[in-house]
Simulated scan of single mutants.
Amino acid sequence: MAAPSRKQVLKFLCQFGAFILTRFGFWNCFSMLMLFAERADAKRKPDIQVPYLYVDMGAAVLCASFMSFGVKRRWFALAAAMQLAVSTYASYIGEQVHYGDWLKVRMYSRSLAVVGGFLVLASGAGEVYRQKHRTRSLQSTGQVFIGVYLICMVYSLQHSKEDRQVFLSHIPGGEVTLMLMVLLFGVLALAFLSGWYIRLAAQVLATVLPLVILFIDGNMGYWHHTRKVEFWNQMKLIGHNVGIFGAVLILATDG
Rank of each mutant, 00 (worst) to 15 (best):
L10P: 00
F16A: 11
G17A: 00
G17D: 00
A18H: 01
I20E: 00
R23A: 09
N28F: 15
C29K: 04
S31T: 15
M32Y: 11
L35H: 08
F36A: 01
E38Q: 15
E38K: 10
R39V: 01
D47V: 03
D47W: 14
D47M: 14
I48T: 05
Q49K: 14
L53E: 03
V55N: 07
G58S: 06
A60M: 15
V61T: 07
F66K: 02
M67Q: 09
F69W: 13
R73N: 04
R74M: 00
A81C: 03
M82W: 08
V86E: 07
S87Y: 10
S87Q: 04
A90T: 09
G94Y: 08
V97E: 11
H98A: 10
H98L: 05
G100W: 13
D101V: 11
L112D: 08
L119P: 05
Q131S: 13
R136W: 10
S137M: 10
G142V: 05
I146T: 01
Y149H: 15
L150R: 04
M153L: 11
V154Q: 09
Q158F: 01
H159V: 10
K161S: 09
R164K: 10
S169C: 04
S169I: 01
H170M: 12
E175A: 06
T177P: 09
L183M: 12
A189T: 03
A191M: 12
A201Y: 03
A202C: 08
L211Y: 11
F215N: 08
K228S: 13
H240F: 12
N241Q: 10
N241R: 12
G246E: 00
